Computed example of a mutant assay.
Amino acid sequence: MNKNIFYNSLLVLFCLVNFKGYSQLQTLSGNGISITDLDAFITKQKDSLGLPGLSFALINNGKVVYHRSLGISNMETKKKVDAKSIFEAASLSKTVFAYFVLRLVDKKVLDLDTPLYRYLPYQDIEKDERYKLITARMVLSHTTGFPNWRYSDKRDESRYKYGELYLKFTPGTEFAYSGEGYVYLTKVIAQLSNLTVQTLDPLFQKEVAEPLHMKRAWFSSAKYITKHKVKGHANGKVVSKAWPIAFPEQDSTWFDAAGGLHTEAIAFSDFLIGLMNGEGLSKSLNDEMFKEQVQLDKSSPHYIYNGDTGWGLGIAIKPTDFGIIYEHGGNNGDFQSGFKINKSNRNGYVLFTNCDQGRTFNQNIGALLLKK
C-alpha cells in the first residue's frame, strides 16, 4: 500500500474515533447523551417556548464540553446572539457573591458569625433591635428575617409603610429568601474594604473574576456590557429597561449582589468549575458553602417547585437518587437563568435566557439532565 494512503487512512480513523468520543456527553448523573440529542432537545425547547436568545454550557468532569449561543438578542432588530453576548444573571449573582464574601472571610476582612451591625449599623432597620442579630452567615443562607424586597413583597400595611424595611421574624430562626440581606452585606463589604457600592466591582474582579478566569463578568456597568448586552423580553416583546433595579435610587453603578451580575455561559462555567474544584477558598470555608445551613420547610416554594431541601451559603441543596445537586435559579422577569452542579463527578450546566420563559426551559432541561 502507498505510504501516503496508509497514513491518510490512519488519520481518518483517528479523527473518527475522536469524533465519536467527543460526541458522547454526560448528564449530571453520569449517563450518556449525544450532542445530536442535546442539540435537538434545546432547539425544540427554544422553538416551543419562544426563547429569543440562549447562552448554554454543559460541564463534564470539570471541563466545558458543550456550548451554544443561539437565537437573537433583540426581537425588533433581529441581531444575533453570539459567544460575546452578555445576559443578566439575575439571582445566580448570589452564588458568585457568596464566594466573594467567603474569599474575604478567608482573608480575615470579616467573620461569618459576627453581627453585621458591629461593622456597619443599618439605619434602614435600626428601629427593630432584632436586626443586631444578623450575620453574614444568615444573609447567605436566607435566615435574616428580611423580606425579599421591601418595595415588592406583601406587608402588613397597618404596621409598615410602603418602602419601609422590616423583619418578618427574629433573625436566625427561619428561612425566607431575601435580596435585602445581600444589599446590607454588600454595604458592609464596601465599608470594610474602604470602598462604596459604586466602587466595589474592581475588588470582585481581583478576588473572583480574574483568579477563576471569568473573562466576562461584572456586577456594575462596564463598556463591554454596553456594547454586547442583549435585550430582555416579556410577553413576546422587548423590555425597555436598561439595568435591573430593586430601589428607586439605584442605577447601573451599584454593585448589585442579589441580581446584578452580567455575564454569559462560558464565564459562569469557569466559576462553577473553580467552585467544584475547591479553588480559591480554604477547605473549611469551601465545606461551609456546601454544608446545609438551614433545612427548608416542605411548604417552601423552593421545596415544592425545585425539590430543594436545604440551603448552603449562596446555594440551594437538592437530593437526587444519584447524589446531591447544588443549584440556583434566577429571575429578573425579562431575563431568567439557572445552574445545577454535581460535585461528585464535576458535571453541571448553566443557562441564560433573555425572556420570561427561561424558568420553564430550566425545569425542562433540568429534567433531561438529571435522569438517572
Rank of each mutant, 00 (worst) to 15 (best):
T309S: 11
E288M: 10
I273M: 08
F255A: 14
T320R: 13
E264Y: 10
I325E: 11
T320H: 10
T263C: 08
D287F: 00
S269F: 09
E264D: 14
G312W: 04
L285G: 00
D270Y: 12
V350D: 07
G314Q: 10
N286M: 10
S269I: 11
N286D: 12
L351D: 01
F255L: 08
A257N: 11
N277I: 01
D256G: 15
F271D: 05
L285M: 09
G314C: 09
L313H: 07
I315A: 09
N331V: 02
N331M: 02
Y349R: 00
N286R: 03
P248L: 03
T263M: 09
F290L: 15
T253D: 09
A246F: 10
N286Q: 13
Y326A: 02
P301E: 05
I317V: 14
F255C: 14
F335V: 05
I266H: 13
K343D: 04
D251I: 03
T353N: 05
K237W: 06
V294W: 06
H302I: 07
A267R: 03
A242S: 15
D287T: 15
K343R: 14
E327K: 09
L261I: 10
I341D: 12
G329F: 03
G329Q: 09
A316I: 05
N342T: 02
I324M: 14
N331K: 02
G312H: 07
D334N: 13
Y303P: 00
D256M: 13
Y305K: 13
K340H: 13
N332K: 00
A258T: 13
L296H: 10
G310I: 08
F271M: 07
G274N: 11
I273R: 14
V239M: 14
Y326P: 02
F335W: 04
A257D: 11
T263F: 09
L281K: 05
Y303G: 00
Q295W: 04
G260M: 06
I266R: 12
F268N: 05
S240T: 15
G333D: 07
A246V: 14
V350C: 13
F322E: 01
Q293C: 01
S252F: 00
A258P: 08
M289L: 13
V239D: 15
K343S: 09
S337N: 04
L275I: 03
G338H: 06
L351V: 08
N347M: 01
K318H: 12
A316Y: 09
H262D: 06
M289H: 03
P319G: 05
V239T: 15
N332R: 01
F352C: 01
V238L: 13
K340V: 01
T353S: 05
S282C: 07
G330E: 08
E327P: 00
E264M: 08
F268C: 07
L351P: 02
W254H: 09
L313Q: 09
P301M: 04
D334L: 01
L296S: 08
I324C: 00
E249I: 04
F271W: 06
D334R: 03
L275H: 06
H328L: 03
N342V: 02
G259C: 10
P319Y: 11
W311K: 09
K343C: 12
F290H: 10
L275K: 05
